[in-house]
């Protein structure tokens, strides 16, 4: 296990000590608990999270478009708003689009943001090269990354759930990718599973050049892989991450277990990270000779 897991100071299996957060959490409720704690302690003034179009009174639902499970980046400043945004939506929430606005219209001096590995890359590029992000760089107080193999456009989720799994999006309670399957849980208790193979053609194309599985550039990154059900694997990466995590642990926000003691453990994280990196490196290679004597652009220099 090496570079595929990025730099980190420690890695543990963890879950929230708050039963209310765990009830609606995707796994261990790590992101929600971290932000709730950081809000309480004044480490952040607010956080950019993936909320929902359903909760937006300005968006009208029609028969053809009801916006269920369509994420909308929102700035939250209270625990109640945070709780409303719990859970993974499995389609694109452009959280970074609010990074400047959070410091302007919302007036936040210390911003928390959760995002995929590519969004953490965007954040760090923006801190070193702030072409259009005036006064943003020092306002980013906590960036939490989530593990990500690939993402889906909203229309892909619509098609997977309504056409392949034959369920209405509005009747879905939870979606999950794990154990080699895409799982859709209905509100009435029904469960549909799709083989991951079915989902591949619906993936967002831009994900196929990404070389980061475990959000290497986040302050703290987390995901279900590697830990038992109901728990999350947590990497503490930066100085900021280290300090926030230490304070949260001292305050009893999380229960933890050593990652070496849990199944399936870090080996699985490492295996999946390597799979993603190998697959996407091959994609990048293939892009070089995509045409006849001409290739596609490679953004990584």
């Amino acid at each position: 296990m090496g570079a595929e897991l990025g730099k980190y100071k420690q890695v543990v299996a963890a879950r929230s000590a708050d039963k209310e957060i765990l009830k609606g959490a995707q796994d261990g409720g790590i992101v929600t608990s971290l932000f709730a704690y950081a809000l309480d302690e004044g480490i952040i003034d607010g956080a950019i999270v993936a909320g929902s179009y359903e909760d937006d009174p300005n968006v009208e639902s029609t028969a053809s478009q009801n916006h269920h499970w369509r994420p909308k980046p929102v700035v939250v400043t209270t625990k109640a708003e945070l709780l409303a945004a719990r859970g993974t939506k499995y389609n694109i929430s452009p959280n970074v689009s609010l990074i400047k606005e959070a410091t302007r219209s919302y007036g936040l001096d210390k911003v928390g943001i959760v995002g995929t590995p590519c969004q953490m890359q965007a954040i760090r590029k923006g801190q070193l090269y702030p072409f259009g992000w005036r006064d943003v760089e020092s306002s980013i107080a906590l960036a939490v990354g989530i593990f990500c193999m690939e993402n889906f456009p909203y229309q892909s989720i619509l098609q997977l759930v309504e056409d392949h799994a034959a369920m209405k999006l509005e009747s879905v309670k939870k979606m999950e990718i794990g154990k080699g399957k895409f799982w859709v849980y209905g509100k009435r208790g029904q469960v549909v599973q799709l083989p991951l193979k079915v989902t591949h053609k619906y993936e967002q194309p831009g994900c196929h050049v990404c070389m980061d599985y475990v959000a290497n550039l986040a302050d703290i990154s987390t995901g279900s892989v590697g830990s038992p059900d109901g728990w999350s694997t947590v990497f503490v990466r930066s100085k900021i991450g280290d300090s926030v995590w230490a304070k949260a642990m001292a305050a009893g926000v999380f229960e933890t277990q050593p990652i070496e003691k849990v199944k399936p453990g870090l080996e699985l994280v490492s295996k999946l990270a390597n799979e993603k990196i190998t697959k996407n490196r091959n994609t990048l290679e293939a892009r070089k000779t995509f045409g006849v004597g001409k290739g596609l652009r490679n953004p990584f220099i």
Partner: peptide, 23 residues
């Protein structure tokens, strides 16, 4: 085939000409 919908561009635009629609 490179866009992954992070929203950096929308945040950078000084005249709010960019919005994110379906990612």
């Amino acid at each position: 085939g490179l866009c992954m919908g992070c929203g950096s561009c929308a945040a950078a635009c000084p005249v709010r000409a960019i919005t994110m629609e379906f990612g």
